[in-house]
Amino acid sequence: MAYEKRFDGRGFDELRPMEAKVGVVKNADGSAMFKIGKTTAIAAVYGPRELHPKFLQNPETGILRVDYNMLPFSGHGDRVKPGGSRRSREICKVMENALLPVLDLKDWPNSVVDVFVDFPQTDAGTRCAGICAASLALADAGVAMKDMVTAVAIGKVEDKIVVDLNYEEDSYEHGSDVPIAMLPNSGKITVIQMDGEITPEDLVVIFAKAEAACRKIYDVQKAALRAKFKKQEDVS
């Protein structure tokens, strides 16, 4: 069977509509909201701050801790149990791996940067949206980082390669998806996962599509970070 038209009518290379805002959690040292389609991620960064228990401290560098959390009402009608699960624990680690390569915490030995990412609403692609939001929040917090991190899931539904899967596509029987986290300026990949099966030929196409998609996400991130600051014409 051929996949002629996407379930939500998007083009095959089209991302869902994105929205980003920086500074949404006033108490945090840095924060951001990143919304892609019906998936919304809110990230708050605290730190660098003192790390306890002490045995977790690393005298060579500060460490990064990510907390991924879907809110109970966020899914598709089934209540998501609060607290950590096997799945959320894995995604925390994946997000740490995605973000850590760009961070420089050498100036902050024995300390921790905590990133809390919560999802009030989810429709697939949460780890990718979470990485995009967390990277915005880390930049907002003034942590030294050499690049932003963008992430998108590219997948295959039937015979077509599709960008940024929604829940219908993600859970489709004859399909697979590959979440990719990429540094938009250098094109380096910090995370790649796979759910389902992909041929090596398709993977090459997926990388190319991910690069193009990540560039679009980066533009949204850049605009959001700039929008936080007042412009000269606002004050005079």
Partner: peptide, 19 residues
């Protein structure tokens, strides 16, 4: 205002300072 990873200048004539 510049964001992390943004290119500020190209060419060896410019010298990177703090940050």
């Amino acid at each position: 205002v510049v964001v992390p990873g943004e290119a500020l200048a190209t060419g060896m004539g410019y010298i990177p300072g703090t940050g």
